[in-house]
Write a protein that binds this DNA or RNA. Structure first.
Lengths: 210, 210
DNA sequence: GTAGTAACTTTACTGCTGTCAAATTATGAT
DNA sequence: ATCATAATTTGACAGCAGTAAAGTTACTAC
């Protein structure tokens, strides 16, 4: 019998199960009995290791998602790849997207968990963008924070709002065929936006319209 | 005493209250007692008029959000305004955004409610985009469905993921100051993307990079 | 080996939530 | 006036979710 006692292992099992359950059903929808079933422990044991549902939820965030937040990925050198690279990251981490979506939907607490670290992380990304602006790789006449937000829009939305993506494109956002096309599109987008007029010298086009 | 009985009025009150409650807390988080309190009726009366929580939820969608889905807005003539106009719409209807977000987060049912109408609505928008492509107003070398999705990304995400928007820009997405800047940014984006190189004749740029 | 501690189980309960059924009150037709 | 019908209130309950506390089993140090 593999009945050896190992608190670390069971804690891990519980956390894994809880991660999936919370991701799928959200905090209110999640059932701790279900988590117990998935982790193959009794629900009381969950309450023994962690202390209540709320605490378990926080633990899940800390253990499972904090690394994601802390992780620092290098920016691509070509600015036109900003969209694509970010999307690639997001597409790999569906669970985190779902967590973000639940967080956005619910308003259980005005301060988001791990706000400090996330703010730092985001600020750092922002300063790198500004640096690219200074180098002339990104247009200077655009607010770098808005560029950053746009990157997140295009990288996150299709994975978060899967039902919409399916309605619009006919394919689920997890479908590799969709991801290929979206990446191709983001590449076009990046090139048109940033390769074409990287300098700030007024991005003169034929002002034909209007 | 305004104690006259008017089923229509109370039904409306219940629906209003339910709309807010479901928007704020989602299906699982919503409490029908709370809906009753807001509508100033007893919870049993809710169960009398509608039949259970699930049915009430569907009714809310039908009555409150269906019109939004059905509504047909004219596309702007200048393609560069596509982003801005869509965002303007979205910013006005926070409740609908929240509904979409809950819908995206939860997986209560694989088929989304009102799918038929929404699909038709979306397809129509798509065909108008294709028409703009045919007119040369939009680049032909981009997949119009991806353009459509991008529009939704940029219009919806900041309003849906308010916590992210706040972390990135420092302002809440309902803040008029943010909305002004985002609109300005989307305008720049649209111009760079669609005013500059509307034709499909290879959008020649200085292929300096790489 | 034994004592102590921590992992796990069992039993039980409390509070809440959605729902049902019956009683009451208003409304409208005849 | 009366009677049927629908609106609304009252009362009650059955189920479940989270939790607490006590009991049992395994592991560890001495």
């Amino acid at each position: 019998m593999g009945k050896i006692r190992d608190s670390g292992r069971t804690r891990r099992h519980i956390l894994d199960a809880a991660t999936r359950e919370f991701s799928e059903r959200g905090f209110d929808g999640a059932r701790i009995v279900e988590i117990a079933r998935r982790a193959r422990v009794s629900k009381q044991l969950i309450h023994h290791h962690f202390h209540g549902k709320e605490a378990l939820f926080n633990a899940v965030h800390d253990v499972k998602f904090r690394p994601e937040v802390e992780w620092h990925e290098p920016l691509p050198d070509r600015p036109s790849r900003l969209f694509v690279e970010r999307f690639r990251m997001r597409a790999k981490d569906q669970a985190y997207i779902r967590f973000l979506t639940w967080e956005a939907a619910g308003r259980r607490r005005n301060s988001v968990p791990g706000e400090q670290a996330r703010r730092r992380r985001i600020a750092q990304y922002g300063s790198e963008l500004r640096h690219m602006q200074a180098e002339g790789k990104l247009p200077r006449d655009m607010d770098h924070r808005m560029i950053q937000l746009a990157i997140l829009c295009l990288a996150t939305y299709p994975m978060a709002f899967r039902q919409i993506t399916r309605l619009v494109t006919g394919r689920d956002s997890t479908d590799p065929a969709f991801q290929r096309r979206w990446i191709a599109f983001l590449d076009q987008l990046g090139k048109r936006l940033f390769d074409g007029a990287p300098r700030s010298r007024r991005h003169g086009r034929a002002a034909a319209k209007r």
